[in-house]
């Protein structure tokens, strides 16, 4: 299929939409990376910055929604264009939620000190965070390159996140059982793990949207063309 619309301004508008989503995705991924770092390093300054920067992600979402709404009004998109514009609202929404979870994790920084329980799980925390950060960057790559295979790969990655999440929770619980003084901090870490796991879910949602944009089918519908 030819890539260019007869009306070139329409192409430009869709390219802008792609760029806005790519930019927001990059920002969301950075927010999570920073949230994890300040959480592990007890860096309250950096944590405050993560919290403040969340407003930028919210602004991105508003910008994407406004731009997509204008495309509807002006172009009445159909087919893949329609799927892209509809999905962009949802993708922006998921990225905004990813930002919220990163912000929440950063907020917990001040309630978790330099304590043994954190040191115990920091390796696993890092690992699960890297996993979801990769999911975000991969799913944005899948979006900008319209790569349904990569979107499916991101869906598969979520299982690894869930597995690691379960292990982390059970590790944390056994720590808290043996060292009851760690319960307060342990609970904060537990919530932080939950934040990261939720980020994986949002990346998964985006992967489903990307798959739909590219193929016109839902990811769980399989290959059976109508």
């Amino acid at each position: 299929m030819p890539n260019h619309h007869i009306v070139q301004a329409f192409d430009a508008e869709l390219e802008t939409l792609d760029a806005l989503i790519a930019q927001m995705g990059f920002m969301a991924q950075k927010q999570q990376e920073k949230a994890l770092n300040c959480f592990l390093a007890h860096d309250k300054e950096a944590a405050k910055k993560v919290r403040d920067d969340d407003e930028k992600l919210d602004a991105c979402e508003r910008h994407i929604n406004a731009h997509a709404t204008q495309i509807f009004a002006r172009r009445q998109p159909v087919a893949a264009d329609l799927r892209t514009v509809v999905a962009s609202f949802k993708i922006a929404g998921d990225l905004e939620r990813i930002g919220d979870h990163a912000k929440n994790m950063a907020k917990r920084t001040k309630r978790v000190g330099d304590i043994p329980i954190l040191a115990e799980v920091s390796g696993s925390l890092r690992k699960i965070s890297r996993l979801v950060e990769t999911m975000i960057s991969d799913v944005i790559k899948a979006f900008t390159s319209r790569d349904a295979g990569l979107a499916l790969a991101v869906l598969d990655q979520d299982e690894a996140v869930d597995l690691l999440h379960k292990c982390l929770i059970s590790d944390l619980l056994s720590h808290m059982k043996t060292d009851t003084a760690s319960i307060a901090a342990g609970t904060e870490i537990l919530f932080a793990v939950k934040n990261i796991e939720r980020i994986g879910d949002h990346a998964t949602n985006i992967a489903e949207q990307v798959y739909y944009i590219v193929t016109g089918r839902q990811a769980d519908e399989g290959d059976g063309a109508a």
């Binding site: 299929m1 030819p2 890539n3 260019h4 619309h5 007869i6 009306v7 329409f10 998109p77 159909v78 087919a79 893949a80 264009d81 329609l82 799927r83 016109g216 089918r217 063309a225 109508a226």
Partner: peptide
């Protein structure tokens, strides 16, 4: 509904979405 959301054929898609064919 299907033709305008998920046409099967690239020629259909190009035409309905106003692409150069």
């Amino acid at each position: 509904n299907r033709i305008f959301t998920s046409p099967q054929h690239a020629k259909t898609e190009a035409y309905i979405s106003g692409r150069i064919g």
